[in-house]
Design a protein around this nucleic acid. Structure first.
Lengths: 102, 102
DNA sequence: TATATATATGAACATATATTCATATTATAA
DNA sequence: TTATAATATGAATATATGTTCATATATATA
């Protein structure tokens, strides 16, 4: 892979990269994604587990969904969310490990 | 390394991880760190290269320095900043590559 | 000493963001 | 149909953030 650090970053790249890291810059979203390391979960289950407002969870999930970091499937009245970006989840996992062991 | 995703993240870890990603969530800071991939640079040089206000660059560098993502050395009137966290710089590099090639 | 240069700092401001509240939407069950 | 449950949505609000401006600090040079 060519070294590209000598070039100015174009706006599209800057926006995409910054948005992705913004998703990971909020404790609530980190907690939600951390839960989704393991398994798919419903909105209510996430809200209960993390002791968060249902509306808050829904808003954050929309944010993550727009960035395609999570996906969902409906089963009756319940909507199950799960992770949808291996690369980002791996980065998050690594960073949590890094922070935990220091 | 044990799988820790079943545990709740403690506040300290949450704060550290979110702060680190917050550093990478702003286009200006990404551009600055991207410049520092290659070499150490003075505040003015960074400001000129990126066409940014000197004060703005100084504020952002302080932010990055507080998180120990950059370090500095003084040479006369000039202060040279350089990267100081391989792990974070690697994550940034990977994410830029990832975004560029999609 | 006085002047110039490089950088840092704090206040001010406009914008962005996270959260809550009230309510709408969607699907199921009675 | 009506009632209930799960989720989504939009407005409101308080706080956080990025940037600029004016100025302070630190160093070098005349």
């Amino acid at each position: 892979m060519a070294d590209e650090s000598q070039y100015e970053l174009d706006e599209e790249t800057l926006f995409l990269v910054s948005q992705t890291f913004k998703a990971l810059s909020d404790p609530t979203r980190i907690r939600i994604l951390h839960l989704l390391f393991e398994e798919e979960l419903s909105v209510n289950k996430i809200a209960e587990t993390l002791d968060l407002n249902q509306s808050n969870v829904s808003h954050q999930l929309r944010f993550l969904k727009n960035l395609r970091l999570v996906k969902y499937r409906r089963d009756g009245k319940t909507i199950y969310y799960s992770q949808d970006d291996e690369h980002v989840m791996k980065i998050l996992q690594q960073s949590i490990d890094h922070a935990t062991h220091h």
